[in-house]
Design a protein around this nucleic acid. Structure first.
Lengths: 341, 341
DNA sequence: CATGCGTCTGTGAGCGTTCACAGTAGAGAA
DNA sequence: TTCTCTACTGTGAACGCTCACAGACGCATG
């Protein structure tokens, strides 16, 4: 290993070819799958690559193929909300690793402000990445349309709301998860089941509320709008929503909360109001975030399969890049029983 | 804007040159700072760029310049620990944005396993990035040495321990922060001040403990090894460490804990032992993470200037890439007074 | 024996930039 | 006038790779 030499001038495909006694073309073929290469030549090339420490120059390759062999992870959130969300960490981490398995670097992009959005779109539309993993919770996000119009392969995390364009996405079964939780509350004898929903311009907000409504109906409980409050997924909004609920309907015996963070806030308010959980009121969360474990009592919640979501996002994005049509993937959630319900 | 046309074949520098009635060379000069270009030509080129929607092909540029105009954010942690750490989010986010301001994409790399480490090193050593923002807490990390030997510009977050190689880094003033906290505890009348330190193979663990020791000495309090416990920054380890401390020294009236997460664990144990905070025992944390605000009572803690740390990491890395010598930057922390002390 | 086919190999061209160099024009100095 | 200097401009040659093509070889088929 000529470490010193390879540092000052990295080995090129020429060096490998010379070393192996073959032509550039043959080396290139070995690099790209090894079809139409004799076993002898292939072995010689592989040995030469090892000896020279050759690593392909991706820029040169990209220049001619037109592919960049990289993928953007684009986060479009006005606030820092997502970065505080523990789910986001899991998602980002798992996507990075799923891509790394295929030797594709992940480029992290954050488009909080209008300016950042413009810059990132410019970068993406210039063809500097082959595709985009999109994390954008809000409906009517102009980024989605722009990317779609530019013909850039996109896979969104969660169903993009209010989007006419056919765009691929991967999501947890929010509605099913909500149903499971409300059924669980009902099965444990609760009959006055309230809910704290998420923002209605997010898919989670819409679907989880729908699941709640469906299940109430299915169980024969009356639809009662005073039992429905809405938050913005923050802890503070959970506190506030619980206050409102207690005032409007003091006799509630269960709350299904659309996120663990909000559920923490709900627990705070309930504790302050002297209600015991789960004796007086059962509380069900959503996400199975670390907060669910650290809250007192520990939260019964719905686990979203983030590892599978990430894996599917990467898989479908690569399929899309390879020319397949956009697809929608919905993955099942799981009820996690702890102390609060 | 010929959106349709520009999609099937993006404008090249040739198109711009033709459109502006100048040569490739002139366009290139405008693109790279505009020196030695007449105002007329410059204006013509800029207009042509706008009309054609031209965006530079970074692959072609990189091929000849040898630079990639991208930077890696490399996380080397055996466990998921860092991803759970709220500080990490702030750091990653701020670095991404500081780089975006300079139009440099951030490539996220995670080297948890040995295999991932090898792959990422291979990528970096091949020159696919111009430099590395390194987040690695443990001493003796082989990655640091490898990168240094390969001559890749590196800036670490936190002082790399046990490293002979001169490597640039940016860190919060852990020792000073610890001093501030212990002085604060002393000033509020506490005289039996214990500590729960971090792992001693992390710079935070070492420095914060040192600051604790120095301040005890400075205040004329006796050095007492039974007052020192160690955790691994996790909440559970905080619980355990507090148990140990209470057993060894039931008369303690203050604890300086080297992280907010551990401090939460300490609070749990104290509550279970019937000790009131801050009446019986004062508790000081470190990090000013969201956990500090949500714990009951809210934690008095030390804020690390993550936004400035990120900005400095990016600044010094770019300086290093430009040829400057590695530098060490230590940034001041701030005491945040809440209820626990 | 010619023909065709499948497997393997080398060669030239070109991807879109930057860089070094050569060259032009105009201003000022000798 | 002539020379020099500065400001500006255009041109060819890379950078390292892939792709299309052409050619060579062995083998089976007609």
């Amino acid at each position: 290993m000529n470490t010193a030499a390879s540092r000052r001038r990295p080995a090129t495909i020429h060096d490998v070819a010379r070393e192996a006694g073959v032509s550039r073309g043959t080396v290139s073929r070995v690099l790209n799958g090894g079809h139409y290469v004799s076993p002898t030549a292939k072995a010689a090339v592989e040995a030469a690559i090892r000896r020279t420490g050759y690593v392909v120059n991706r820029h040169a390759r990209s220049l001619i193929t037109g592919r960049s062999d990289s993928v953007a992870f684009l986060l479009t959130e006005p606030q820092e909300r997502f970065f505080e969300d523990p789910n986001f960490n899991v998602l980002l981490r798992a996507c990075t690793q799923a891509l790394a398995d295929r030797d594709i670097p992940l480029i992290l992009m954050i488009a909080g402000t209008e300016d950042e959005r413009r810059r990132n779109l410019r970068y993406i539309e210039a063809g500097h990445v082959d595709g985009v993993l999109l994390v954008s919770s809000h409906s009517g996000d102009p980024v989605v349309t722009r990317l779609h119009e530019a013909g850039v392969p996109v896979v969104a995390c969660g169903k993009p709301l209010g989007q006419t364009a056919r765009i691929g996405y991967v999501a947890a079964d929010d509605r099913g998860g909500a149903r499971d939780m409300v059924r669980h509350l009902y099965a444990s004898g609760r009959r006055r089941i309230a809910t704290v929903g998420g923002p209605l311009d997010t898919p989670g907000g819409v679907e989880r509320l729908a699941g709640y409504r469906e299940t109430l109906d299915e169980c024969g409980l009356p639809a009662d709008e005073t039992l429905i409050a809405t938050g913005d997924y923050s802890r503070a909004s959970g506190e506030e929503a619980a206050r409102v609920l207690l005032e409007r309907a003091p006799d509630i015996d269960a709350v299904f909360v659309a996120s663990d963070l909000m559920a923490q806030g709900v627990l705070d308010t309930l504790a302050r109001a002297g209600r015991r959980v789960p004796e007086d009121i059962a509380v069900g969360g959503f996400d199975d975030s670390p907060a669910a474990l650290s809250s007192r009592p520990a939260l019964t919640t719905i686990r979203q399969p983030w590892d599978r979501i990430s894996a599917e996002m990467v898989r479908t994005l690569l399929a899309r890049i390879a020319g397949e049509e956009p697809s929608a993937v919905i993955l099942p959630t799981a009820l996690v029983r702890r102390e609060s319900a």
